[in-house]
């Protein structure tokens, strides 16, 4: 499995960016920066946010799209499925096995 994915998830700021994109997909860089600074009091430069987004994009967790003159960032949680496939979760219908 790609190290990119785990590296992308290993940073709290990047996880916050994913939280914000979960709330609303399709944000400009400006909106992401506003949310980080105003909602989360994270004083990070726009350039640093861009670098975080580049890592998230490399991991496939964020996709960008151009719409006319604007560029939007969308969330893509599909890569997370690979984690669940590698370490499958117990079927919720089955009673939970207790480990001794």
């Amino acid at each position: 499995m790609a190290d990119d994915l785990f590296k992308a998830l290993a940073d709290p700021t990047r996880r916050t960016i994913l939280d914000e994109l979960t709330e609303k997909s399709g944000q400009t860089l400006f909106e992401i920066c506003s949310r980080l600074s105003m909602k989360h009091q994270l004083g990070i430069s726009r350039q640093a946010v861009s670098q975080h987004l580049a890592l998230l994009e490399a991991a496939g967790l964020v996709e960008t799209r151009r719409e006319g003159r604007y560029k939007f960032h969308d969330l893509n949680t599909a890569p997370l499925r690979r984690i669940a496939e590698r370490w499958p979760m117990p079927d919720p219908s089955e009673p939970e096995k207790r480990t001794p």
Partner: peptide, 9 residues
């Protein structure tokens, strides 16, 4: 163009 691309007012 650069500002609009990044959504900066």
């Amino acid at each position: 163009d650069a500002l609009v691309k990044d959504g900066i007012p």
